[in-house]
């Protein structure tokens, strides 16, 4: 059993090295703070796992019935107050350690839209099986692809034309549902250039799996260049 636990840890640790595990390989500041919490909770939970599996293995080996013990009557205990209090208090302590940064980060992420200065605004319209990205500043519309400048916060204004979708860019940050009856906002700040996968995470119909988009993060200069060219082409 400890073997399997060790395997669990090895898989996670080795996986974090792998570049293909999107969430563990963040390219945006929001994804980074979410990942920090993932590691914190994983570390805390590993303590729990370690304690439980150690006791589990030990008790199973030590107290199995040996030949000749079939008619034994082991002593019966009702419980142990001290022990029972211990495993109420310690989990509460662990949860407190986890809860404080969790709540702080939640407030920070949820209210980011109001805090960031000079963000790039993009209106996202989801519709069964496609994403439309509209840059109001430059009046450019893209379908199933979006271009972002590096190191500049982007505020996505999410709205759906039909059913509920969910906007997810795993390497840049967590998801936000795209609702037909209300507008949601999501702020992401890409920190590295590259191409990242975006997807719909809420079942939205037959081709839900195919509702993806490409995100290209480019240097700010290149982005400005692109908007200018695109603007001219639109006209």
């Amino acid at each position: 059993m400890t073997f399997r636990y060790a395997l669990f840890v090895i898989v996670i640790i080795s996986a974090s090295g792998c570049s293909n595990i999107a969430v563990l390989n963040p390219k945006g500041s929001e994804a980074q703070s979410e990942l920090n919490l993932l590691y914190l909770s994983l570390a805390l939970m590993s303590i729990v796992l370690l304690v439980v599996f150690t006791l589990f293995t030990r008790f199973l080996m030590k107290y199995r019935e040996l030949p000749g013990q079939e008619n034994d009557f082991p002593t019966q205990v009702n419980g142990n107050k001290k022990l029972e209090i211990t495993w109420v208090v310690i989990p509460i302590a662990i949860l407190t350690i986890l809860a404080v940064p969790t709540f702080a980060t939640t407030y920070q992420l949820d209210n980011k839209t109001e805090i960031v200065r000079e963000p790039l605004e993009i209106n996202v319209t989801a519709q069964q099986y496609k994403w439309k990205f509209h840059y109001p500043e430059h009046d450019i519309t893209l379908e199933n692809e979006v271009k972002l400048p590096v190191d500049r916060p982007v505020v996505f204004t999410l709205h759906s034309k039909d059913v509920i979708h969910s906007f997810w860019l795993p390497q840049l940050g967590g998801k936000k549902d795209v609702l037909p009856n209300q507008v949601n906002k999501l702020t992401l700040t890409p920190l590295e250039t590259g191409v990242y996968d975006g997807k719909c995470a809420e079942l939205c119909g037959a081709n839900h799996a195919l509702m993806t988009f490409d995100t290209t993060v480019i240097e700010q200069e290149a982005f400005n260049q692109w908007t200018r060219v695109a603007d001219i082409q639109e006209d």
Binding site: E34, S41, T102, F103, L109, S166, P170, K175, K176
Partner: peptide, 11 residues
């Protein structure tokens, strides 16, 4: 843990 759930949710 809410912010991390933004990543896990519906995955």
């Amino acid at each position: 843990t809410v912010p991390a759930d933004y990543q896990y949710h519906d995955s």
